[in-house]
Write a protein that binds this DNA or RNA. Structure first.
Lengths: 355, 355
DNA sequence: AAAATTTACTTAAACGATTAAGTAAGAATT
DNA sequence: AATTCTTACTTAATCGTTTAAGTAAATTTT
């Protein structure tokens, strides 16, 4: 009895370390009998090189699929063509839209984008910036953590590395700050509720250390005063990062004897908790309570009821902040603070605050 | 009349280019009267250096706030300690959660994370990977575009640069593929609707080029057949990137004489359109139509009605894909394909599909 | 026709780190 | 006491580019 032949075919495609096969300028130089200087200059289209030579170099480079070693280039030129984005979190419609804008501008200008999440931890923010200051990036776009109360570390790093702020800015640092009209938005959201009939309005904030939150609170308070509302009825409730605790806080708020008839939530992540608490307590919006949230979620239209929002220009702010930094990197004689802009948010009225 | 003295105080804090102030190993060497080799070895805690010298070096390095030049190190070592994430978009709960997981693992392993968005364009995917293959990163985590039908470019780059896929994977490429149970999820979502009483179910897909979508469709079809539903009543509708066109497509679907009584949406971004169309047409969920969406939005609970979802383990998949690559980078003798895993999704039943 | 300029290159140093190979002094072994 | 081995360094090459400075030949100017 004959065994059938067994053919075992084992193909191993190894990942060659980049080192090995990599085509360098030196290899091109040898093949063309030219110096590496000539190759380098030809590739950068220098006037010192004849048209014919340039063509030969370019042709061979294409043939061998030459790609320059970015680390050699960066070492030599002292610039990395890379920027960093340092933000508290990414699973948030504001920051993900902003990152979208940043990436778009970076790509258009041939910059690469490193992403770092602080998860609202000041220590992490410091550690990241310290590492970045070592030269890994040409500059950083930052939106500070809710814990960032002192700006010392930012001061320190700003002298080594251009920093540009967006949304959660640091006015104390002398650089570009890309903001939205937080004060007006806080005012407008509150005024909208007052106009809709609310008399006791609660503002839900997170960290009072954040400049943008205190601006929103300032707008809120001014609206209360401007409309002669009894200040006693209105209040500011400070929430935090923990959804369960926030649920508890909001639940307590809504069970007070003098419970508010209007809520301004200054942070998107409080939205779900507000809806859940109201549902649990049988408080229907907009009758029992009217709600406005700072939020960019496209799905706000399909909430039950649809949610009145302050929509921040997240994408535009991302583009603006990246543009400010890149403009400076291309021409460091411009003044970064002059690149600061404020892009207005929009109040979009939906069913959670109006019949 | 004496003019009051006017004191103008103009402080210009210039951004010193990193070059200037940067402390190098050479400077440390000079100050300590040692060679650069000694400094380098002392900093990496080499046994060749005496304890006393190590201490002096470390002390001075700390004092002068020395940070190594990453470009010099990367050039010399042929590795960048940087990975790239190449995804279709970021303003999507799946990808932003996945990025969250990726960043967490990268940070824990001292890797840096570059982010690139393809915006579903194959050309962009190719261009990005070509650039990355030049050595900027040690490897890339990719989730392919909806246009990616051929894998040639991936084949090509995979030989130069370790690629690892997640979610929108490429089974043709011999590497780690981190997936969820798309077939079972498609089956389960459909079965759930059938059990809830649906008899004519529509599946909304996007690009049929995507492996994960065809898996979901396969599960859908099997459920239809297994439950002896008249195949004529069920259908697959292919949507795309344009919300308005999707609205139109869904609207037409729901106005057919034999309109479906159940919908499985395989992509999160179709959710809002489905709700809007149903609202416009006066079709109430779950009575007139029952809906299940593949979605990770936390706010699904507060939709009107709350949405039954297939929840993908986005964060875990992000961690897994980053871990697979980094494990390989630390020990290239492991087999990447063996790192493939499937992490199951969960069906979360809410009001859009049940009374 | 001599001098000056331009063209099209090359040489070599530099960027800041790592590391193989070398070395001088002291300690241990025989 | 001569030999070998350690210890704790230094020297110098290297990674892949860029670029200031140099040069020989061709071209233009005087």
């Amino acid at each position: 009895m004959h065994d059938k032949p067994i053919v075992v075919c084992l193909v191993i495609i190894a990942h060659k370390p980049q080192v090995m096969g990599a085509i360098t300028i030196k290899i091109l130089a040898e093949k063309l009998n030219l110096s590496t200087a000539t190759i380098s200059k030809a590739l950068s289209d220098s006037h010192e090189i004849s048209v014919g030579t340039k063509q030969r170099v370019l042709q061979l480079a294409r043939e061998l699929n030459y790609t320059p070693n970015v680390y050699a280039g960066s070492l030599r030129r002292h610039k990395s063509k890379t920027i960093a984005v340092v933000i508290p979190e990414i699973a948030d419609s504001f920051f993900s839209l902003a990152l979208n804008g940043i990436e778009e501008v970076a790509l258009a200008n041939s910059y690469h984008t490193l992403i770092y999440l602080t998860h609202e931890k000041l220590e992490r923010e410091k550690a990241i910036l310290k590492e970045l200051a070592g030269g890994r990036v040409d500059g950083a776009l930052v939106s500070v953590t809710a814990e960032t109360d002192s700006v010392e570390h930012l001061y320190e790093f700003n002298s080594q590395l251009p920093l540009v702020f967006f949304d959660r800015v640091c006015p104390e640092i002398d650089t570009a700050q890309i903001t939205t009209n937080d004060f007006e938005s806080g005012y407008l959201a509150t005024k909208h509720l007052i106009d809709a009939g609310c008399r006791k309005i609660a503002l839900l904030s997170i960290s009072n250390k954040l400049n943008i939150i205190s601006e929103r609170v300032r707008g809120f308070k001014k609206a209360i005063v401007d409309h002669n509302l009894n200040d006693a009825g209105s209040c500011v409730v400070e929430c935090d990062e923990n959804p369960d605790r926030n649920h508890q806080l909001i639940s307590e708020l809504m069970q007070r004897v003098d419970r508010p008839d209007g809520i301004v939530a200054t942070v998107e992540k409080l939205t779900t908790e507000i809806y859940l608490v109201c549902h649990d307590l049988g408080l229907t919006m907009p009758n029992a309570v009217k709600v406005v949230c700072f939020s960019n979620q496209p799905s706000a239209t399909i909430f039950n009821p649809s949610l009145t929002t302050i929509n921040q220009p997240a994408f535009e702010m991302g583009k603006a902040v990246a543009l400010a930094l890149i403009k400076f990197l291309k021409n460091s004689s411009i003044s970064l603070p002059d690149e600061s802009i404020e892009i207005p948010s929009k109040l979009i009225v939906r069913r959670s605050s109006s019949n």
